[in-house]
Nucleic acid binder design. Structure first.
Lengths: 161, 161
DNA sequence: TAATGATCCATTGACGCCCATGAAATTCCA
DNA sequence: TGGAATTTCATGGGCGTCAATGGATCATTA
């Protein structure tokens, strides 16, 4: 298991702490996180993106292609690095979400963790429900357009890559 | 961790002192700073750029690429070296920002420290919010242009960061 | 001696770390 | 196969440490 899959919903306690779902923690440990996980506001959704070293390298990769001191790089740097928070994981597998991040995702008392392969997202449960509902509708439209295709069995235990 | 990541906002006290965020200090100590950090007005933003030895070497590298006695080099030299200040860090991890630097960034009572990899910037919080907003919009445009990023297969555990 | 700046000290509030509790799933045994 | 014990997790709380901040003392210099 080296990918984030499934969704889980956990509570935020009085101190702003929230448990990372155990399966996600297992992935993070495999991925390696030096000091914490990387977390930043999703660019196109009211949610937070998070992951371990692999995600960090992806960000670096984006910037690596741009020349130093170009305007483009500066802006990307600000948007990416500037928004990234490194969140420490405590001994019980919990993180603390800083206020600005919570605000972006509209997080109140609960967080829905959504696995997305090599990263995961954190949503306010209500907002995620809404998004999921829309996603389902789109899938249905697709199926109509494509003429019904037999559902591909998800079953994979075989990890790809 | 040898890179500046995340953002922090600290206060400027009555004497003009401001604490460098502890994580940044840790990076600086690893990077090495002989007597202080290098700080100068950002060329294209109402902010201050700062860093340790690595940043100084990068500036040297930039200038080295330009022919001696070229107009470009002269201008860059003046623009960069001319305004560079070496700021001492006191026993409590604080620096004092000289008036000209504060003026350039419009710093009043608070400073937002923004990690940008091998340097960091200091912004007036309000101005940084604005800049971040713009930067995020640009990134969204980028993503549209690139089409959605193909899910990069796990590859590349390459370098540690 | 007055003013300026640097070093040191104190407070407070946040955060990291530890342990306790309870629920749910899993295993083990009858 | 059913029930009980055990383990895993999520969650809540207490406490110690460290960082940020404000203030005071000391040195330096004009």
């Amino acid at each position: 298991m080296d990918r984030f899959v499934s969704t889980f919903t956990n509570k935020i306690d009085a101190k702003g702490r929230v448990s990372i779902p155990a399966p996600f923690r297992a992935v993070l440990e495999r991925d390696g996180y030096a000091g914490g996980i990387y977390c930043y506001p999703s660019l196109d959704a009211p949610a937070l993106d998070a992951g371990g070293e692999r995600l960090a390298q992806k960000i670096d990769g984006l910037l690596a292609g741009l020349p130093d001191y170009s305007d483009e790089r500066d802006e990307l740097s600000v948007a990416l690095y500037g928004d990234v928070q490194v969140l420490a994981i405590d001994g019980d597998g919990r993180i603390v979400l800083p206020q600005p991040l919570r605000a972006h995702a509209g997080l109140q008392s609960e967080v829905t963790f959504v696995g997305l392969g090599d990263k995961f997202q954190m949503w306010a449960p209500e907002r995620f429900d809404e998004r999921r509902r829309v996603a389902r509708e789109k899938v249905q439209e697709h199926r109509k357009l494509l003429g019904r295709q037999p559902p591909r069995s998800e079953g994979g235990d075989g990890e790809g890559s």
